[in-house]
């Protein structure tokens, strides 16, 4: 990948929904390659630059985490609307992952377990939060592709840095992500 000053930089957005930011941490594991990357891409909405909303059309969006509340759905839809290629990054985005372990448990049990049957001093009032500003919890954690169309999936918990790097390089070079070889997501 050699810098090409003539070529327009690829616009990348990233976000973490119901995830742990582990996928973003793994992305940072590309280490010094980030210097090379920055000659090819510019970041739009992303925790990396703290832009809060997408403000121009993006070439690719990476989404970490599934959707557990209305805010997540809203963000995901914003990404779909503005990104040419939408990528589910990591297990939670692809399957719901760890947060989805609550799926199948009735909401009343969940709320009472977390907020009412607790000795946590910060939750001393034992109230179920109901402020209108708080995003509303969904009936279950949804993988991203059940809510919007997703173009590519990068598996792993987290996907390793080489996989994320390889995916970025392919997108920059205009290649398909379909034939990423097994070595990139072999985790044993």
């Amino acid at each position: 990948m050699t810098p090409n000053p003539e070529k327009k930089k690829l616009v990348v957005a990233t976000t973490s929904l119901a995830g742990c930011f582990g996928c973003h941490m793994s992305f940072l594991d590309i280490d010094e390659r980030i210097l090379q990357l920055i000659t090819h891409v510019e970041f739009n909405r992303s925790p990396i630059d703290d832009i809060k909303h997408i403000n121009k059309p993006c070439d690719v969006g990476f989404v970490e985490g599934g959707c557990c509340n209305t805010e997540n759905v809203h963000t995901l839809r914003e990404f779909r609307k503005n990104c040419k290629i939408l990528v589910s990054l990591g297990q939670c985005a692809i399957t719901g992952g760890l947060p989805a372990m609550r799926n199948g448990i009735p909401m009343s049990d969940l709320f009472s377990e977390v907020y009412q049957n607790t000795n946590n001093p910060t939750l001393g009032n034992h109230l179920i939060p109901n402020d209108e500003e708080i995003p509303i919890i969904l009936d279950r954690v949804y993988p991203c592709h059940e809510i919007v169309k997703v173009d590519a999936f990068l598996p792993g918990c987290p996907p390793n840095a080489d996989l994320i790097w390889e995916a970025l390089v392919r997108i920059i070079e205009g290649k398909s992500l379909d034939d990423l070889t097994y070595q990139y997501f072999k985790y044993d």
């Binding site: 209305t70 009735p106 909401m107 009343s108 709320f111 179920i128 939060p129 109901n130 209108e132 509303i136 919890i137 969904l138 009936d139 279950r140 949804y142």
Partner: peptide
Amino acid sequence: FAIEESVKVAGRS
């Protein structure tokens, strides 16, 4: 549909 249950349990609109 997705928020129906939690809205009810949390007692919010």
